[in-house]
């Protein structure tokens, strides 16, 4: 009960206590992202056709047909409905991103906590590994991992999510480790030790709740980046195959040849979807940053109206 209240209050804080640009960025970002999340959840009901559906009622769709009453966004060369694929693409994108953030948090946060709390050689080794991963060009890393993982798991959502996680884990690790290093010096940690708490208890009950607060910000900012990376992988023909799921990057790749032929709709809509979702997530991330980060936060102050002296 208390936990629920805490979560609700934490969610409400950004709205109740902020002002100006940060608030607007957050609101607009949340609206855009929210629309995509709704599309993702209700894709089977919203999308007029399936993502790999080339005919309806036994009649084939037109090949690269222009937008019409039947197919609002037109169809592509494989006879698929562009609008349906764009909507189903949102589902793929959101699935991959949520999964990869989950993996990042599950791996990166505990590693950062342990590394920051214990310090010493463990910390140094982990730092070295993570920095090495971080120093790699992230897209190259994603390509390598998706090659390896697609071999193991096939071109599934899980495989792609895992290869994306590999490039973002170092960021979570870094942030959590650094906040842990400073938080473990706090008196309340020493107080926990003074009541006889073990290291595990201190990390779980005293440090975790206080170092986790920066994760939502990196989470949303990384999500935006992950959408781009996912599309990039799809564009290169890696990762998810078009028959397994609709994926914007993959569709863009196929639309490449269309552009010269005057078929603009196959590229425009998936591209637009990427731009919108990335923008939305970035706005949420920056907005959260401004509201959660006390150094950037502008509190919404009520204007001071001094009463006349007689009123006192």
């Amino acid at each position: 009960m208390a936990a629920l209240r805490r979560v609700l209050r934490a969610l409400a804080t950004p709205f109740t206590q902020t002002a100006g640009l940060g608030r607007w960025m957050l609101v607009i970002g949340l609206v855009i992202t929210g629309i995509f999340v709704l599309l993702a959840i209700f894709a089977p009901w919203i999308a007029p056709y399936g993502f790999a559906q080339a005919s309806a009622d036994g009649v084939d769709f037109p090949k690269a047909g222009a937008p019409s009453g039947e197919h609002w966004f037109g169809t592509d060369r494989l006879l698929f409905d562009v609008m349906s694929r764009t909507i189903w693409g949102a589902r793929t994108a959101i699935e991959v991103v949520i999964l990869s953030i989950l993996i990042c948090v599950v791996i990166g946060v505990p590693l950062g906590l342990v590394s920051g709390y214990y310090g010493g050689w463990l910390d140094r080794v982990l730092l070295l590994v993570m920095d090495a991963l971080f120093a790699f060009p992230s897209f190259l890393l994603a390509i390598v991992f998706s090659f390896l993982l697609t071999d193991l798991f096939g071109g599934s959502v899980l495989a792609v999510a895992m290869s994306l996680s590999a490039i973002y884990i170092p960021q979570y690790y870094r942030v959590v480790r650094n906040t842990t290093v400073s938080a473990k010096e706090a008196t309340y940690v020493e107080a926990a030790r003074a009541i006889g708490a073990k290291d595990g208890v201190i990390m779980r009950r005293y440090l975790f709740g206080n170092v986790i607060q920066s994760v939502p910000v990196i989470g949303t900012l990384n999500a935006a980046d992950a959408i781009l990376t996912l599309a990039g992988l799809g564009f290169l023909g890696l990762g998810i195959q078009s028959t397994d799921a609709a994926e914007w990057g993959h569709d863009l790749n196929r639309a490449l040849a269309d552009a010269g032929a005057g078929v603009w709709w196959t590229g425009l809509y998936p591209g637009l979807a990427i731009v919108l979702l990335v923008t939305g997530l970035t706005l949420v991330g920056e907005g959260l940053n401004e509201t959660l980060n006390p150094t950037l936060r502008k509190r919404r102050l009520l204007p001071v109206v001094m009463t006349t002296r007689e009123d006192r």
């Binding site: 109740t16 206590q17 509190r299 919404r300 102050l301 009520l302 001071v304 109206v305 001094m306 006192r312």
Partner: peptide
């Protein structure tokens, strides 16, 4: 003389110095 300093907050004005 009769100096007042009020702060704005999210709840209203704090009358930190009031006359």
């Amino acid at each position: 003389r009769d100096v007042r300093v009020w702060y704005g907050t999210t709840r209203g004005a704090i009358r930190a110095v009031d006359g």
